[in-house]
Amino acid sequence: MRIPRPIAPLPATLLAFALVLSGSWASRADSEAPASVDAVPAGVVGVVGSVDEVLDCVKLNAPTESSEQLVEFSAFDRIGGKRVSRAKILGKRFESDSLRRVLLRFTKPLEVRGSAFLAIEQDTGSPDMFLYTPEIRKTKRVTGQGGGGKLFGTDFSYEDFARWQGLNQPGASERLPDAVEAGKPVWVVQTRPAAEAESSYDRVVFFVDRETCVTLKTESYERGDEPRKILTADPGQLLEEGGVWFATELLMRDLRDETHTQVVIEDVEVDRGLKDSVFSLSKLDRNRGR
């Protein structure tokens, strides 16, 4: 049975999903104590009724302040050709504006070593994004909606990346009938991006594990009933770190282009304290993690 459609205005909604999915960090609308697995699922599982409760469950399963992780992207083209890139992903929620920033510093392939990408969440609309390329030695702001392509040669678009990293993506959500995903019972939430998000998707459907509040699958629909992309998390590779559950192996499939990207996350550290300056534009040219 379809649950009536309570609309949840959502800066935080998608963010929360993405955070859990990526094993990254999350915003917390309030200053609650770090979510613990014991606390969240025990209190939520089985009693969730509204879409907000599902979103709260996801939101609480997130780092309080910051996260660091090593990520390896293995992008496969249509004929099975593999291209590997490796980056350190740093994330922090700034106390000053309660908005988050995500920084990627690439170490592989060698030709792009030192390149950096910074995404700064905005109150409304899509995040601001900046690139630093060592060969040009300039930081460039990237604007426009044309980034719907293949970010870093992977199957993530700028929008997918922002969603995965939990950056603000305005939209409205509703609960769909519960389901079973990869053998696990899940809550299903559908989000329709708001116009100001300039999303390339008509809707995005999340399948949230009822036990860990990790999003096990995200289906992104451009139009019609066939998803354009599906991001899945391997439920056998969930990791608990600092009381937060992370998916450490993910697979992003572009069904239209018949390409896919494997994402493997290692060395997850939560709430170790990252300086704000790490995320400043002026320091993008510095090849440092902290």
Binding site: A75, D77, S115, K150, G153
Partner: peptide, 18 residues
């Protein structure tokens, strides 16, 4: 670096992953 950041879906029709 240009291909890394400037890569788009259109480029799929002209250059393979390797």
């Amino acid at each position: 670096q240009l291909l890394f950041f400037g890569s788009s879906e259109d480029l799929l029709g002209f250059l393979d992953g390797r």
